[in-house]
Design a protein around this nucleic acid. Structure first.
Lengths: 140, 140
DNA sequence: TTTTTGTGTTTACAAATGTAAACAATAGAG
DNA sequence: CTCTATTGTTTACATTTGTAAACACAAAAA
């Protein structure tokens, strides 16, 4: 899913089921895209089977075939897969600092971390050269 | 920076300064890319000013102009910027579950979370339609 | 000094992406 | 039952990305 497609999906995930007309209307409040552009994106998402359609009189109704959280988790996991093992932690710490998180989410994270801390290794090696050993000069 | 460029950068970030010959050698241990392909990537990274070069006899030496952590933070931040505000927390929780983290990183995260918990809101609204109010039907 | 060869640069080209106009089909209006 | 307007589909085209061959030029070797 491309960034533009993702923007369209957010609307559809939120609405659950929506006509193209409404997608266009909502989308145009966010981005200066022509009607055509949005129709193209809907078409591509449908072809990729990320959207399913149901005919309804004159227009179609679009609904996601994949839950938003599933898509999110996949995208986030993919991104992190390409980062240096050793520095992922620092990346998350920096991210946490910037995000607005609810009490509930923070508590769930804390629980998760408490659990992981028990058998966490004291260091994680850099795997950037895939050499099998710690590739990084700076070990921390 | 594209995914392929990122792979090349990881090598150079780790080595700090490296000849194209060595980049090619290391890279070819990871991916089945032709020498040409890797040279193209080095060229593009140089043109984008992500790499700086110094002539050294027959070959050039490449070194990053941007620290890896800076680039990482930017990429991670960009990704999260496009996700639903309400669901970012859940995304991180899922991510944490999957990652291998060092004790030190976990402790730093815990510290960060403790600090944030104090004045964390009890809920974060979905902003997927940018309507100004909570867009999501499911409020959690 | 000429030849060779190792490197960076140019050019190439298909696929994906962003962006959008033109077209076709069909539901609803008259 | 025809006409029109709406909405999905085709086609279009520039840019970026993945992948790589061809080329030019400067060192090193002869």
């Amino acid at each position: 899913m491309t960034p533009s497609e993702w923007e369209v999906m957010r609307i559809i995930w939120t609405k659950r089921s929506i006509s193209s007309l409404d997608v266009i209307e909502v989308m145009q409040r966010k981005r200066d895209w022509s009607e055509s552009t949005i129709k193209t994106l809907l078409g591509r998402l449908t072809k990729k089977n990320i959207l399913a359609t149901t005919k309804e009189g004159r227009h179609f109704n679009y609904r996601p075939t994949v839950p938003e959280t599933t898509a999110m988790d996949k995208t986030v996991a993919e991104l992190f897969q390409h980062l240096c093992d050793m520095k992922k932690g620092a990346g998350i710490i920096n991210l946490l600092a910037k995000l607005n998180l609810s009490k509930g989410d923070i508590e769930r994270m804390q629980a998760q971390l408490d659990k992981k801390l028990k058998d966490a290794p004291s260091t994680i090696n850099c795997n950037c050269l895939s050499s099998g050993k710690n590739d990084c000069y700076i070990t921390d």
